[in-house]
Design a binder for these strands. Structure first.
Lengths: 223, 223
DNA sequence: TTTTTTTATAATAATATAATAACACTTTTA
DNA sequence: TAAAAGTGTTATTATATTATTATAAAAAAA
């Protein structure tokens, strides 16, 4: 049974969609929190995503673009505006289909079925990031190399993920801290170092200890 | 008016694109010869490049990679197979967008517009600065020349960066000191000299020792 | 020329930054 | 409820980078 993730903040619409899709042979689930949206979405490992453009805090286009960096999961954008430009922009950001609210639910269903069929033919779109020396399995938050696999904790994963999407660029410790802890109560600068150490320890188990270089005074860089 | 360079060997498609883009407010030009492709492309100094993967003699991936060494120009890859795109994305050749042939010309247009808009905004955080004799790789804080690369420490980088953005202008020692150490406890005037020396030593490894001239009593100048 | 000022070079010392290890607390899992 | 896993804190150690110091060289001024 195909799993559909609904990313929509209006609870009424979300529930409605959930019920409708569940009735029609899908395993639909609505996202409830919107703080770590991109990662949360990826972790759900859905077969298709319904993504509202107008979300609180972050905007849907941004999420869409971020998802596309690491995943080929089919995405249908939901929006309330009905201009051609929006459609083009959505498609440009990597969405596969586009639906305006209020949507005809039968048409939505048809688009979902169509997309899923096509994506099946396109082969397995696993959420894996190919990184030269290893593979970052996003949906399992694990590192894979040859036939070995080791699992990462949340922090370890997020650090590595951030380095991967900034591969070959120096990222400052400050940036990483902001990415991991956002506006949280101020975090000791050393806790990053410690988390880094733990990540590296795990990488070492796959002989990858030195893919993360430290640029003293500047940050870290993933090779 | 934004200039778009079309790198596509099939003349029919090339002409078609040229006409269509010209009609839509761009200055489109097709590349005619494919012998010194990379150089020819760079010479055109386009704002965006449409790059076919299946070119005669060289392949588009190689070109894309080469372009990325020295330029951040937006690149849209054209490919004939749908499955190729997955590979492309995972291999991360540095293209910004991908389009399969036969392409929906409206979507292509949307992607072009989107990319151009984004690249304009990206503006100042350019990560490579082209400096005649060498390239200053900002995101790796390194100097590149031909196929050699040497990495800089924080101070070395900052001095060079300051000289680069003031290329061909004399910058006083005082200015550099203020830039590096801001309001910090007053720094011995000699420490700049020493840092300068270290920078020059690294530059020498790339035979660039004398691009920084000292103007006694006035400061330094980068040629 | 000689003297003075400014910059370069080399060697050493200092320090800031990051790595490591051990512990404490919380959350999750069994 | 106990055990395990995960995370943040503190304390200590290591080290890369940077500053200092001392001396030499070069340029400008006398």
């Amino acid at each position: 049974m195909k799993k559909i993730l609904i990313v929509e903040d209006e609870e009424k619409i979300r529930k409605e969609l959930e019920i409708f899709l569940n009735k029609n042979g899908f395993k639909a689930k609505g996202l409830e929190k919107f703080d770590n949206t991109v990662e949360d979405i990826l972790r759900e490992n859905a077969d298709l995503i319904l993504l509202d453009i107008n979300l609180p805090y972050i905007d849907g286009l941004y999420i869409c673009k971020e998802l596309r960096k690491t995943s080929n999961v089919p995405i249908i954008m939901l929006t309330s505006r009905d201009t051609e430009i929006d459609e083009l922009i959505s498609l440009n950001y990597g969405a596969d289909q586009y639906v305006t609210k209020p949507y005809n639910i039968q048409i939505l269903l048809a688009k979902i079925i169509g997309l899923l069929k096509r994506s099946q033919n396109a082969g397995s779109n696993q959420d894996k990031l190919n990184c030269e020396n290893f593979i970052l399995n996003v949906s399992q938050s694990a590192i894979e190399k040859e036939d070995k696999k080791i699992e990462l904790t949340k922090n370890e994963f997020r650090i590595l993920y951030y380095l991967v999407i900034n591969k070959n660029k120096i990222v400052s410790r400050e940036d990483i801290i902001n990415y991991l802890w956002e506006s949280e109560s101020f975090i000791d600068d050393n806790t990053l170092t410690v988390n880094m150490k733990r990540l590296r320890d795990k990488l070492e188990e796959l002989d990858l200890q030195d893919i993360i270089e430290t640029k003293r005074g500047q940050g870290y860089i993933l090779r």
